[in-house]
């Protein structure tokens, strides 16, 4: 049986910017932002692992702020800007944080990784020279079952150094 006109839930005309591109779609109010990104837009880099706000795998940037996309309805992003892991860098042009995760082996199964990257990028913007304690605190809202976090912490340190070095280079 298909969804008939009369029983169709009231849809909301959603317009938002995702990774720099305007996206428009009619959605049900209850649609979670995580599901909208993954299934309506096909941006499957944002992962879903708990849907109750603890694990952090679904973290995206909403107007630059790292938030749980499983705890926000897509309609709430109307008129806002969302950045997902796909918006950080590309395979042949990794973001410095992504590159540092590769260098330091901060990835194992890679399932929690997108949410960690989207948490670390704004963290390093605010803390360009973080201590290990600050890094661990910043990662405390992202569960990882594979790494024991050590190589992730190392990756964040490495990213901070690399980004600092890049910033200190005179502009050409």
């Amino acid at each position: 049986m298909a969804i008939t006109e009369s029983t169709m839930p009231k849809l909301f005309d959603l317009a938002l910017t995702v990774n720099g591109t305007l996206r428009e779609q009619a959605v049900e109010p209850r649609l979670l932002l995580s599901d909208f990104l993954r299934h309506d837009l096909g941006l499957t880099g944002t992962h879903v692992a708990c849907e109750h706000g603890v694990c952090g795998a679904c973290t995206v940037l909403l107007d630059g702020e790292p938030v749980r996309s499983c705890l926000i309805f897509a309609v709430q992003a109307h008129g806002h800007s969302v950045t997902t892991v796909e918006g950080l860098g590309a395979v042949d042009r990794l973001h410095p944080v992504q590159e540092a995760f590769r260098q330091a082996h901060g990835v194992q199964c890679g399932f929690c990784t997108p949410g960690i990257l989207t948490s670390v990028v704004p963290f390093l913007a605010d803390h360009p020279d973080p201590s290990e304690e600050e890094i661990r605190e910043a990662l405390s809202g992202n569960l990882c079952r594979c790494t024991g976090y050590q190589h992730i912490v190392d990756a964040v340190k490495l990213a901070a150094q690399a980004m600092k070095a890049a910033n200190e280079q005179p502009a050409r």
Partner: peptide
């Protein structure tokens, strides 16, 4: 309170 990302929202 909560986690860093929870405090953003």
């Amino acid at each position: 309170i909560g986690y860093p990302q929870i405090r953003r929202r």
